[in-house]
Amino acid sequence: TLFEALYDYEARTEDDLSFHKGEKFQILNSSEGDWWEVRSLTTGETGYIPSPYLAPV
């Protein structure tokens, strides 16, 4: 399942991933609570992002 960003987000740590509203992601790991490890389909980068900022496509 692909997810889309509902809002912009600016990374706060080196493990976070900055992204823009509308960017699409592949979920790599969603078992860590509200922070999911994802791969951006736009940039190819991986990192953690807050799951409340995402919605299924």
Rank of each mutant, 00 (worst) to 15 (best):
I27M: 06
P50S: 09
W36G: 00
S31Y: 09
E4N: 02
L2V: 14
L17A: 03
S18L: 02
A5I: 03
T46I: 14
I27C: 06
E45Y: 09
W35N: 07
I49P: 00
S18I: 04
Q26G: 02
A55T: 13
E45R: 14
T43W: 01
T13E: 09
R39G: 01
T42F: 09
F19S: 02
E10R: 10
L2G: 02
A55C: 07
S40Y: 03
E32T: 12
I49H: 00
W35Q: 07
E45V: 10
G33A: 13
H20V: 14
T46D: 03
E45M: 14
G33V: 10
G33P: 14
L6G: 03
E4M: 10
L54K: 03
R39I: 11
E23Y: 04
D15N: 14
E14Y: 10
T43N: 06
Q26P: 01
G44K: 04
Y9S: 04
L17D: 00
S30K: 12
S18H: 08
L28S: 01
P50Y: 15
L6R: 06
E23F: 02
W36C: 03
K21E: 05
V57W: 05
L2R: 04
N29E: 07
T13N: 14
L17C: 04
P56D: 06
L6T: 06
S40Q: 05
D8I: 01
S51D: 03
Y48N: 06
I27R: 07
F19R: 00
F25D: 00
F25P: 00
A5T: 05
E37Y: 15
V38R: 00
K21Q: 08
E37T: 07
S40N: 14
D16S: 15
Y48Q: 07
L17V: 07
Y53R: 06
P52I: 15
V38C: 09
E37V: 12
T1G: 12
A11Y: 03
E23C: 06
I49W: 00
I49G: 04
I27A: 04
E23H: 07
T43D: 02
R12P: 10
Y9M: 04
E37M: 14
S18W: 04
S40P: 00
H20C: 12
N29S: 12
I49M: 04
Y53K: 08
T42H: 11
R12D: 10
T42A: 12
G47I: 03
T46S: 09
Y53W: 09
Y53S: 11
D16I: 12
L2A: 05
P50L: 12
D15E: 12
V57N: 04
G33Y: 09
A55W: 09
L2H: 07
P52S: 15
E32N: 15
S40D: 02
W36E: 01
L28K: 02
E23I: 03
G47Y: 05
Y48P: 01
Q26W: 13
Y48A: 03
F19M: 08
G22P: 00
W35K: 11
G44W: 06
I27G: 01
E4L: 08
R12T: 14
T43R: 03
F25W: 01
E14P: 13
Y9E: 01
P56L: 08
L41Q: 06
G22I: 00
N29R: 07
F3K: 01
L41G: 01
V38G: 06
P50K: 13
E23W: 06
W36R: 01
Y9H: 07
K24M: 13
G44I: 01
E10Q: 12
P56A: 10
V57Q: 06
S30I: 09
E45I: 10
F3G: 03
L17E: 01
L2S: 05
Q26D: 07
G47K: 03
D16A: 15
F3Q: 03
A11N: 05
D34R: 07
T46A: 07
F19E: 00
V38Q: 01
A5K: 00
T43S: 10
L41C: 14
F25C: 02
F25N: 01
D15K: 15
S18P: 05
F25G: 00
I49S: 02
D15Q: 14
Y7S: 09
Y48W: 15
E37Q: 13
T42I: 09
R12F: 09
T1Y: 11
G44R: 02
L6Q: 07
L28F: 03
E23M: 06
E10S: 10
W35M: 12
K21W: 04
N29K: 08
K24Y: 13
A5S: 06
D34K: 08
L41P: 02
Q26C: 13
R39V: 09
S51C: 12
T42Q: 10
D8P: 06
D16P: 02
P50I: 04
P52C: 15
H20A: 11
A5N: 01
I27T: 03
S30Y: 12
L28Q: 02
E32P: 08
E45W: 08
E4T: 08
D16G: 15
D34S: 09
S31D: 12
P50A: 09
F19G: 02
K24W: 13
E14C: 13
T1P: 13
E10M: 11
A11Q: 06
P50E: 09
K24N: 05
G22W: 04
S30F: 13
A55S: 11
I27E: 01
K21N: 03
F19N: 00
T13A: 12
L41M: 12
Q26F: 12
E32F: 12
Y53L: 14
R12V: 13
Y53P: 04
R12W: 08
G44Q: 06
L2K: 04
T13S: 12
D16V: 15
Y53C: 15
T1R: 10
N29I: 05
R12G: 09
Y7K: 08
L41V: 09
H20T: 13
L54D: 03
T42G: 07
S30H: 09
E10W: 09
V57F: 05
S18A: 07
L2I: 15
E14T: 13
E37R: 10
A5E: 01
S31T: 12
L41S: 03
L41W: 04
E14G: 13
E4P: 00
V57R: 01
S30G: 09
D34G: 12
Y9N: 02
S51W: 15
Y53T: 07
